[in-house]
Design a protein around this nucleic acid. Structure first.
Lengths: 223, 223
DNA sequence: TTCTTCTGGAGGTTTCCCCTCCACTTAATC
DNA sequence: GATTAAGTGGAGGGGAAACCTCCAGAAGAA
């Protein structure tokens, strides 16, 4: 299970390691912009390497996809822990976490993850569940503190994050788009606060990550 | 300029008109799910017609795209007017408008519109601007009434709507996904209310539709 | 019934993407 | 600086997928 085709074996040569990192970063960007089916050639081009280099490091699409997802999940989990440990309240930690994760663009990598990678991959699952647990803890605590509205679930927050992370259509310059996303996050955070004058209670189903997962079990395998 | 290749000329035969409408509806759905580059064959299949029928009615992709966009814009504008005329306050009208537009899925058609259609197409522009004006009026009035927070722009609201309209990744059943979208809209509406305990002021640039448009003028034509 | 409009889907053409191969370059090591 | 193993780029064959046309036949209109 600890056998990653790319990270295994003896350490990479310095230039090769650089290239690998650049490919990973480029892949994240391109997947965000074009979806998980984006041509691998676009990725290698953006990374400034040849296509062969990409294929040497990641023998097939899934291997690349998996590495990108793992990287994003890892960083997300780190941010969750850091926020929890360094912020004075759970709500403050949650808000900081959301802004940081928006920067990491996990929300954009998530689609890739969901559709292209086996949900029960051991390594992925362990990193993911670690991060989710921390985040869930923050949500519960913030609700107990009376800072976060009680009728919202951790899955709501996750989904909202996904919605914010995806790039808006049109040719808005990337930096502007990112600022706007943070702006909209501010607005959503205001909607998340426990406060008077609210919509009585949120409508629609209050889902959990568990619900989302079980719904993913192919509804229609074949015609 | 008033020459639409499909709506022009003598009226269509009854069955042909039905097919045309079904194709239009199917196209909206498929574009939402697969993006503006979706295979036209998928669309004709979903509409229950042959591919040739689609091509006869819409000679090329742009013609179909345009018709879909125009239809969505038209219905959006109608909803805006109806909400304005029938609701007691501007804020209530705005909320109703947002929920209705979410159902119409304009937010999903919008990307198609933005990237594939000339922005200055006369007919499109006239319908669009009509709807936008009403919506802008609602925003301004709701702000004057003290119901809508003053630091939000109509473009913010439009962009948030786009974010909500796009389907979430993963295999969430469509009806559930729609309920969740309305749920999240409820939450955002709470963030839109003028109230105490807010983030001092929203960060990031307060854009207008005009800004969005002018940024769309190709930053890099060719390398 | 007759005429005209409309339809379906097979299939040639084009476009795009995957992935391998090998002559050449470059870091590491002595 | 010489040697060697590791790494690199990009051309190009193979194959999948989408476009779009064509025409024999089905179906509304009168």
């Amino acid at each position: 299970m600890a056998q990653q085709p790319d990270t295994a074996g003896r350490p990479l040569r310095a230039d090769a390691r650089d290239n690998r990192n650049r490919i990973l970063a480029a892949a994240a960007e391109v997947f965000v912009e074009q979806g998980p089916g984006a041509p691998l050639e676009d990725i290698s081009k953006r990374a400034g390497t040849g296509i062969a280099t990409l294929y040497r490091r990641f023998p097939d699409r899934e291997s690349l996809t998996r590495a990108v997802a793992l990287d994003a999940l890892q960083r997300t989990a780190d941010e969750a822990r850091r926020a929890r440990d360094e912020e004075p309240t759970a709500f403050a930690a949650l808000v900081r976490y959301l802004h940081r994760v928006l920067d990491i663009r996990i929300g954009a990598v998530f689609p890739v993850l969901l559709n292209e990678i086996p949900f029960d991959d051991a390594e992925i699952a362990s990193v993911r569940d670690g991060g989710v647990a921390v985040m869930q803890g923050l949500v519960a605590t913030a609700q107990d503190d009376g800072d976060l509205r009680p009728d919202v679930t951790h899955a709501d927050i996750g989904m909202l994050l996904v919605r914010l992370s995806r790039p808006l259509p049109g040719s808005i310059p990337r930096d502007v788009a990112e600022q706007v996303a943070h702006r909209h996050l501010d607005l959503i955070v205001d909607g998340l606060r426990a406060a008077a004058g609210r919509t009585a209670t949120l409508g629609g189903p209050a889902l959990t990550f568990g619900d989302l997962q079980s719904m993913g079990d192919d509804p229609d395998p074949a015609p």
